[in-house]
Design a protein around this nucleic acid. Structure first.
Length: 109
DNA sequence: GCCATGGCTAGTA
DNA sequence: GCCATGGCTAGTA
């Protein structure tokens, strides 16, 4: 597994309950500003194995990107976030200025 | 190698 | 526009 993937996993594991990050934000923090879609891939393939809080990743508009039909992952995602105390606006968006998490960068200099 | 395929995104003729 | 991944052809050996 490459370093980007490893960092993505670490970063996502570091998001506390009640906070969220966007795909692009995770990608950038992992060292690849254009790698948002790769974050999606990691979420799909590693969430179970690495016990990732996959629901705490949302799109840049503050919305849930997973499909939101009946019994879908999207609804589950919203449920999980609401259980952590996050509230949604009437149009189904999360207020990023309030809930966005900024990971502490530990690898330095 | 080529090409289509994504739970995306910054920038906007 | 971006960019890694996966399926599927060329085209060599």
């Amino acid at each position: 597994m490459n370093v980007f993937t490893e960092r993505v996993i670490e970063i996502i594991q570091g998001i506390p309950a009640g906070r969220v990050m966007t795909y692009g934000q995770v990608a950038a923090a992992a060292g690849s500003p254009r790698g948002a879609r790769q974050v999606v891939r990691v979420l799909h393939s590693m969430s179970a194995k690495y016990n990732l809080p996959w629901h705490r990743i949302i799109n840049a508009q503050g919305g849930i990107s997973a499909p939101s039909d009946i019994e879908s992952k999207g609804l589950r995602q919203r449920e999980l976030l609401e259980m952590e105390g996050i509230t949604f606006s009437v149009d189904g968006k999360i207020d990023l200025t309030e809930y966005r998490w900024f990971p502490i960068d530990t690898v330095e200099s």
